[in-house]
Amino acid sequence: MHADTTTTGRKAAALAAFKDLARDPGVPKPDPILVVDNVVRRFGGLTAVEVEHVEVQRGSITALIGPNGAGKTTFFNQLTGFDTADSGQWTFNGSSMNGVPPHKVARSGMVRTFQLTKALSRLTVLENMRLGAQAQKGESFWRALVPGFWRQQEDEITQRAEELLVRFKLDAKREDFAGSLSGGQRKLLEMARALMVQPELVMLDEPMAGVNPALTQSLLGHVKDLREQGMTVLFVEHDMDMVRDISDWVIVMAQGAVIAEGPPDTIMSDARVIDAYLGAHHDAPLSDSELEEQLHQAEAALEAEIEEETQK
C-alpha cells in the first residue's frame, strides 16, 4: 500500500507542476533542475542544434521527441560534455555546466546512457556495475596497490550493485561477461550501471531502441521507478506509445530547435508538431489536377465501402 501511495504521489506531484503551464517552447517550470539558454552547435554550414531556452522540471519524466535529424542526440552530447557547443550556457542545479568535461558532468549528478549501448563486453556484469560507483579509494594508483585501503569500500559497492542487479533481474548473470548479454539486457545493465553513480538527473538516449517487446514493459517500469525514487529523467525516444505511457511532459525538437512543449496526451495534436513530423502542407493539395484526383480516390473508396456493406 505504501508503495502505491508514493507512486501516485510522485506522479501526481509531477503532473500538478505541469498543470497550468503554457504550451510554448521554453516555458518556465516551477522548479527546474536543468536550464538551457541559447545552445548552438554547428557542423560546418549545418546548424544541428539551436535551442533558445528550455527547462526541465525536477522530479519529472520529460521526453524529448522529434523527427530523425532533429538534433536530439547532439543536444544530449552538448549537455553532457561529450561534444563542445559553439555557444550557449546551461546550468544544472544552479551551477554552470558549459565547457565542463564529461566525467565532471557525471560526478555532478547528471548521468547519461547511449543510443548504441556501451556495455563493457569483456568485463563481467558485476564489474560493470562496480565501475559506476563514485569516489572509489581504490581507483587511485598508489592506493590500488594496497587492497587494505579499498577492500571495505569495495564490499559496500558490491552490495549496492547486487541490490540493483536483483531489481533489474540481472542477478543470475552477475559473473557473465557483459558481451554475452542480449540487446535488451545490455540496456538494462547500462541503466543499472548509471544508477550506481547515484545521479539526480538520468538522461536516457533511446532506451527502447533494439529492445525486444517482452523486455519493453520491464524497462518502462524501471524508468517510472526512477521518478519514484526522486530522480529526474530526461529521455529521447521515437516510440510514441512509450512516450504517452511514461512521460509527464514532452519537449519537441525539429531542425535543431525546440518547437513545442506540452503534456503527452495532447502534444501530438499540436499543429506545430504535426507540421514538423509530416511537413506543413502534408494535407493540402498541390494543384487542381491533384485535387481532382484526391476527390476521385475518395469517391472510389466510398463506393467500394457501400458495395461491401450491401454484399453482407
Binding site: 553532457t80 548521468v111 556501451k118 563493457l120 568485463l123
Partner: peptide, 16 residues
C-alpha cells in the same frame, strides 16, 4: 580495462 572496452562509457560514469 573498461577504457579498453569503451572510453565514452567510462567518461559517462565520472572517470577521467
Amino acid at each position: 580495462k573498461a577504457i579498453r572496452e569503451d572510453e565514452d562509457a567510462v567518461r559517462s560514469l565520472g572517470k577521467n
